[in-house]
Amino acid sequence: MASQSSSEFEWPVLYNYPPFYTLQTNLDTRAKQIDAWCNLILNYFKYNKLYVLDLTEALASSPLFVNSQLNRILSRETASLILNTLDSRGNLEWQDKEKDRCLVMWRTPKEWGALIYQWASDNAFINTVCTVYELHSGDDTINEEFYGLELIMVVKALQTLQNDGKAQIIQRSNPDMSDAGVKFFG
């Protein structure tokens, strides 16, 4: 759920530039255009604390891709091209083979992991077991940036900590890890 309304988001000047919604043929211009789109998507998702993008849905109704004031819409081909660019930059992960659903990672899992670990060590949770649920929806993390973070991102973040030997994920019965726990190491 978006905590702030998208109307407060400060759109970049290109958002109101009609040719921004037509893929440019000049390759230098196109590179600049795609770069600007990548930044816009990451900033928009970050501002609204969004994590999952459903392409079909977004192209139908999200103000990100549909500029009703200008009457301009990003085409599916162009949007896919931009999202694939984000993927190659490590800021996006496709969730399905059809490339319709993806995770938009305006912070990389490693960055999230560092934030979670910082919280754990600041609040004396080292060497204790927390549930994954507590991390993203518990009372202790309500003021943390990762509060409300998508479960799949929390798990990815914890996996980076596990790889660094800073935590151990304790899996229970649910395959999506929604009931998993984690132990932080000092």
Partner: peptide, 30 residues
């Protein structure tokens, strides 16, 4: 277009050729 001085907008009734230099001059400053 080749010189990068013009962007194309194909979503207008007729293809429009935009000069970013002139277009952004018309926009209010932030």
């Amino acid at each position: 277009i080749k010189e990068g001085m013009v962007w194309v907008d194909q979503q207008a009734p007729q293809t429009r050729y935009y000069f970013p230099s002139l277009f952004f001059d018309l926009q209010p400053v932030k």
